[in-house]
């Protein structure tokens, strides 16, 4: 998705307004001249000035539409592959505690490999192999706490 400078300016102006309001509302318990709200307000002003500059630049590029979709967004395969990443990350965060690291990562990798057109035998082998390798590196090597989940009875 490509937004022209006018669109970016409008988004920046809205963000500046929100930031300014947040800055004003911040308490200043120690009654300092430049308390915790000073920098948010200063940045809100600078963001506002940048928004004006972007709107002026956007006004000059009249030919560019406010929002234009890139060619890949019209291809359902690319759209699905793109969506697979946030969905995959959400799947990991929500399921890793219950399923455990090894099953979650194996399923995640397998699904992504298949979405990219990798042969399923190779995809399955690499998914399980890579999950085991990363588990060894982070859990056994670096002592990062990775949940065992379903594999708790056979943890090593």
């Amino acid at each position: 998705m490509k937004v022209n400078n006018l669109g970016l300016g409008i988004i920046a102006a809205f963000a500046a307004l929100c930031l300014g309001i947040a800055g004003i509302q911040l308490p200043n318990p120690s009654k300092q001249i430049y308390g915790p709200g000073f920098f948010p307000l200063l940045l809100a002003v600078l963001l506002g000035v940048t928004a004006v500059a972007l709107v002026v630049e956007g006004g000059r590029q009249r030919a560019a539409p406010l929002i234009s979709l890139q060619p890949w967004t019209r291809n359902p395969v690319f759209l699905l592959r793109f969506a697979a990443i946030p969905i995959g990350v959400a799947f990991y965060v929500l399921c890793v505690g219950t399923l455990g690291f090894l099953p979650t990562v194996s399923v995640l990798l397998l699904a992504l490999f298949l979405s990219l057109g990798v042969r399923w035998q190779l995809a399955l082998a690499v998914a399980v192999g890579a999950a085991l390798l990363m588990h060894s590196l982070f859990h056994l090597g670096l002592r990062v706490q990775l949940p065992w989940g379903l594999l708790e009875p056979i943890r090593w």
């Binding site: 990443i85 992504l112 490999f113 990798v118 190779l122 690499v126 890579a130 999950a131």
Partner: peptide, 9 residues
């Protein structure tokens, strides 16, 4: 195609 999903993990 094999590398990128591993980079994600």
């Amino acid at each position: 195609d094999l590398l990128m999903p591993v980079i994600l993990v």
